[in-house]
Design a protein around this nucleic acid. Structure first.
Lengths: 176, 176
DNA sequence: CGCAAAAGTTGACCAAGTCAACTATTTATT
DNA sequence: AATAAATAGTTGACTTGGTCAACTTTTGCG
């Protein structure tokens, strides 16, 4: 049986406090942009998806996607699920994006009701601006680190992620 | 000059995404309590302060606090500053706590306007309940870890904290 | 077909958080 | 001592980010 975990729990709580503050700090930059934090997250998520190859687009890639029944581009429901957002809210955000000319929606390849999203040029530009702002913050945060320290940080961040990614999804199963 | 930091930045961004999701997960428990996330944070902050020894309380401890001009207990402004909250908002939260009998406020030892906060018994009970819920989540999150892994995690969390705590405060100085 | 589930949308609603103005207390200036 | 300026706190009005419930349309399935 595992030994006493109270020390680890305490350390995690401490780290949580620390990192919450840090995130708050980093979020400030995003908050001062034209976007809400959540909007920014949605934009990031849209950019993070491959999304370039649409199954209903022409060319070999589109053909491949059609044949393999793979849909590379996310629908609103995907965003809502991954980011744990209310579908209604996602709809509104997406409408705002669309009105600003940042995104395009078109019917998915295999289903009409599944409307597939992609960033327009403007959307990609907006995202790039946001990303570079975020990158600047992160860079500034780590500017004092030596090269070895930087490498070490990369390593242990991955390690933390690995150690903590055991159970994260298995916690909200309660529907009979 | 420091080498290219883009790899580290990428890893940090990745970790951020991961940890944001994790925090969201953990926050759920707190959200389902009688408190708002922010209220919970305030409650935690109140509990985290020494706060037991009031400078205007009787006994040797109170006397000591008076003599040393030390105020162990936090005022609303301290909470607002540390948690980066709007003073108005803090006032309301504190009023709610007070109405629920969780906190007491009395004039500070060295200044009337500085009203000093402390948890009542009920407040400490409420906090304890909240903490045990949070602890349960954290324990569950790490239950699959072996003893060495647990120790390792503690270590590298502290290390991350240390590596990242270089600049955090020096970023918001812009008032001439 | 006919029913159930999924994707998305709409409108009504709420509560968390913000802003600006104000009082009261304290400190600094001359 | 008088006055100005800063600090702590409070109040009311307001904004808005986010939620809820109901509904439409599309798709899957027996």
């Amino acid at each position: 049986m595992p030994a006493d975990r109270s020390a680890l729990v305490r350390d995690l709580r401490c780290f949580n406090r620390f990192y919450t503050g840090l995130i708050g700090l980093l979020d400030e930059t995003l908050t001062h942009s034209a976007f809400t934090l959540t909007e920014a997250r949605v934009l990031f998520e849209l950019g993070r998806r491959p999304g370039r190859i649409a199954a209903n687009s022409g060319g070999k890639a589109g053909f491949l996607a059609r044949v393999l029944q793979i849909d590379f581009e996310p629908a609103a429901s995907d965003i809502a699920r991954d980011l744990q957002l209310d579908p209604a809210y996602v709809t509104r955000i997406l409408r705002k994006f669309s009105a600003a000319g940042l995104t395009e929606t078109r019917a998915g390849p295999d289903a009409l009701r599944r409307r597939v999203l992609s960033l327009t040029m403007r959307g990609q530009v907006a995202l790039a601006a946001l990303q570079s702002a975020a990158d600047r913050d992160l860079t500034r945060l780590t500017v004092d680190l030596g090269d070895e320290e930087a490498a070490e940080l990369s390593d242990i961040l991955a390690r933390v992620r690995h150690l903590l990614s055991a159970a994260p999804a298995s916690e909200r199963r309660e529907s009979a």
